[in-house]
Structures are given as structure tokens and as C-alpha cells.
Simulated assay, not measured.
Amino acid sequence: MRRFLLLACLVLSAALQGCADRRIPAEFQAYADAPYSLGPGDRLRVIVFGQDSLSNSYAVDSSGKIAMPLIGFVPATGRSPSELAREIAARLRAGYIRDPQVSVEVEAYRPFFILGEVTTAGQYPFVNGMSVETAVAIAGGYTARARKDDAQVTRTRGDRTVTVDVPVTTPVRPGDTIYIPERFF
């Protein structure tokens, strides 16, 4: 009888372990709290005040650069829009425009990806304020075999990629890959 009670306690503690409050790792949280950094797939609106020929929409290409008239390719990946604006202004100031005033806005964010137990897995346009649960809704909802209480989110920043199990209320960032796992029973 004692062995049975011991085994029952072990099984119960293992089952309750799954209910424990999961903490999101600090490194992943730091990515979520950091200012937005540009990457391939972003579409930018660059405005050079007083220079209509330079003001335009530019896409960040697969090498992480935008191509602008006069100054050529400007690295954008890993920079914030304000950092990119300062770089463009510095390049224009070096021989083209006396005192350039530059503004950079994100017109369209790079897409996010969703895989696993959703109706229509794939690539979707990013929407501001989106959570994992909203991303699932955009992908057509859960399948019958989906685990609905958590997901895995893979986020890349610079040369670091982090994959974390998160609750479905976790905010999604542009470029994230979300995986909805299958439930066991």
C-alpha cells in the first residue's frame, strides 16, 4: 500500500508540474522589450525633406540593405528606423546635401510564420499588437489535435536565435516563427 501511495504522489506531482507558472527566459523577454530593429522583408518610407526625388518607399532586400539614389546601398538590418535615418543623413551630408533632414517609417513589417496544428500554416502579414492567439486566428484557428494553452516562438535578433515555450497571450514580433504543438491526449 505504501508503494502505491508513493507512486500516486509521484504521478500527481509530475502532473502538477505542468500547471506550474512558466517563466519566459530573460533573453527572450529582452528581445520583446527592445526597440524594433529592421530586417529583410520590411518596407520603409524614407522622406528627405525638400528632396522629392529621394523621398520614396524602399524595401529591405535579402542582404539587409536598401538601395537609394546618390548614396547607393545602405545597411538597414539590425538598426532602428531612427538609426537608419541618421545614417542616410550622414551619407547625404558627405557631398550631396548641405543639411539633410531625414525621416524613416516602417510602411509594412516583415511577415510572421505559423506552423504546426493550425488550419492553414504559412506566412502572414504582421499586424501591430498581435499575440500568439491572434496569429492562430489569422491562420484559420486550431486543428482538433492542437494544444491550445501554449506554443513555441522562435525569434531572431542579430545572429542569435531563441526558441521558447510561451503562453498564447505572448506578443508576436515581425519575423517570428510560431509553432503550435500537438496535444498528447
Rank of each mutant, 00 (worst) to 15 (best):
R155T: 05
A34K: 03
G116E: 08
E182G: 04
E87S: 07
I114Q: 03
P25R: 13
V136D: 01
N56V: 03
E117C: 14
G129L: 01
D149Y: 01
G72S: 14
G72T: 14
N56H: 11
A76N: 12
L44Y: 10
Y58S: 12
V127W: 04
S103C: 00
S37L: 14
D33Q: 10
E83Y: 05
S80Q: 15
F4A: 13
D165E: 01
E105F: 11
S63T: 15
G50W: 13
D159S: 15
I71V: 14
A135P: 00
F28T: 06
V136C: 01
A32R: 11
Y31F: 14
G175I: 04
Q152G: 00
C19L: 01
R155A: 08
G140Y: 00
V60F: 10
G78L: 03
Y179C: 04
A89L: 10
A15H: 04
Q51S: 15
V153I: 12
T143Q: 01
M68Q: 12
K65Q: 15
V136K: 05
V166N: 03
Y36V: 03
V132S: 02
A15S: 08
I24N: 10
G39Y: 15
D61W: 12
R3P: 10
A67M: 10
S82A: 11
T154H: 00
I47D: 12
D159Q: 14
K148V: 11
M130S: 06
F49I: 15
Q29G: 04
A67L: 13
C19K: 00
S13G: 00
P174G: 04
L16S: 07
T154S: 11
L92K: 04
T120L: 07
A14D: 08
A26T: 14
C9M: 10
T163S: 14
C9P: 00
R2S: 12
S131R: 07
R2C: 08
R110A: 01
V168L: 11
T156L: 05
P75W: 04
V118P: 09
T119N: 12
A108C: 02
Y109H: 14
T134Q: 09
D99L: 08
G95A: 08
P111D: 02
T177W: 11
R155W: 06
V127S: 10
S62V: 08
R173M: 11
L38I: 13
F4C: 10
M130P: 04
V48I: 15
D33I: 06
V118Q: 11
V164K: 10
Y36Q: 06
V172L: 09
E87I: 02
G175K: 08
D99K: 03
P181Y: 03
Y36F: 15
S13F: 05
Y142T: 02
N56P: 02
Q123A: 12
V127D: 06
L12R: 00
E133L: 13
V162T: 12
P75V: 03
S53I: 14
A30Y: 02
E182T: 05
D165M: 01
D149W: 01
A30L: 09
P111Q: 07
D61S: 06
R183P: 02
A137N: 08
L6D: 06
V153E: 01
L16Q: 02
C19R: 04
A8V: 10
T134P: 00
A76Q: 12
I47R: 15
D21Q: 09
F126L: 04
I24V: 14
S13C: 03
E87P: 01
L6G: 09
L70W: 14
V172M: 10
N128G: 09
T170L: 03
Q123V: 10
V166F: 00
V166T: 02
G175N: 08
R157K: 13
G141S: 01
T177P: 02
